[in-house]
Design a protein around this nucleic acid. Structure first.
Lengths: 199, 199
DNA sequence: CAGAAACGGAACGTACCGTGTCGTGACGTT
DNA sequence: AACGTCACGACACGGTACGTTCCGTTTCTG
């Protein structure tokens, strides 16, 4: 979708320069003020080249965004479900509150409403995997008896991620780590878990 | 902010036609594809008139949006905190999933990231009052002993509203009433409330 | 080394922006 | 009743960014 046909002759230099310029401009001006012309000028690349490899501004920034976050949010299993959820949600908070990724992601979320392909890509490449990772970790905790057998895991994940998105889209200040810790504790308690968490 | 100086001579017909046209176009094309020129053409109004009374496209749609929702989400107190929260959240879900208001609100949320005045207006006119109403209702329940004295009410409201926004901005299907009911039950349980809610 | 393909640069027509100008008509004042 | 005032619709303007096209050059492939 992003690269219509892969080509060995494609200039990696142009690709990188375009993605870097897109993120830079997103930081400086905000997603909605970034233009393809400005990206081309900043990157020292012709507009033609950008339109050859990407279908829209949204596609460029989605690739720049995901590209920068490959492996940036690993999900380690320490055996402490509360600790692991805190780590996971804290990384999501940082993701959405750190330049240039926060503003870029806000723009991507906007564009999703008019670009079905972008919406699908975001779901498959960003949201889906993170959601699944959180649910998998909760399922393991459930199998180990740290969470009741009848716990509604998708609902739990929504309760964890919901406030992150709520604050992000409404431009409220991001959660600090204490707030995230409290959120995790509340969600676990809502599932009926025993509050006996270490630390 | 919306009306720079109120005037007795302002044409109510032009105002209504503009707001109606804005909502119509938002339904048909999506917020990001709506232009002031199209609004003016649809409403049979000159662009000059629109720019005379509103500062931007976002201001027009915010007024159209809030205008249509004055009193649409009353917060009744039946004495049953779970029931009242369900009613409240269900109305929010409908608000964000019904055309033309859902797409319009999505667009407004996007525009907020580039328009500080719009962000402030949304916070003061839409988000703030609803958040405060939910918190007030929870506080009353706390005073009546239905919720523990140490319950974190702002966190509870975020856990209630978070999933609504999460689904809305990610274009996921809106919650049905059973899901909302489960969400409310989970949030109340996370606060340490007794699960003894009537039917 | 020849062909193909991606490249940068420049220019195009279109769309929408926000503003300015103008004549008209509905209001309020006296 | 006559006169100012002011919002109105209309039209035109310069500016910006869109997405595309043409052209000549560079770079990789075979």
């Amino acid at each position: 979708m992003i690269t219509p046909q892969s080509s060995l002759r494609r200039s990696e230099r142009s690709r990188r320069a375009t993605l870097d310029a897109a993120l830079e401009l997103c930081t400086e001006k905000g997603y909605g003020r970034v233009t393809v012309e400005a990206i081309a000028a900043r990157a020292g690349v012709s507009k033609k080249t950008i339109y050859r490899w990407w279908t829209s501004k949204g596609a460029v920034l989605l690739e720049a965004f995901t590209d920068a976050f490959v492996g940036a949010t690993p999900f380690v299993d320490t055996g402490d479900i509360a600790l692991d959820l805190r780590t996971h949600i804290n990384s999501a908070v940082r993701l959405t509150s750190t330049t240039p990724y926060g503003p870029a992601y806000a723009g991507i979320l906007s564009e999703m409403h008019y670009d079905d392909a972008l919406a699908e890509a975001v779901q498959e490449q960003l949201v889906g995997p993170r959601f699944a990772a959180a649910e998998d970790r909760l399922r393991k905790a459930r199998e180990q008896g740290q969470i009741p057998a009848d716990a509604d895991l998708p609902l739990a994940v929504e309760m964890l991620y919901g406030p992150v998105y709520y604050r992000h889209v409404l431009r409220k200040p991001p959660q600090d780590e204490a707030t995230v810790a409290s959120l995790v504790d509340h969600v676990l308690r809502s599932l009926g878990a025993e509050p006996g968490s270490p630390g």
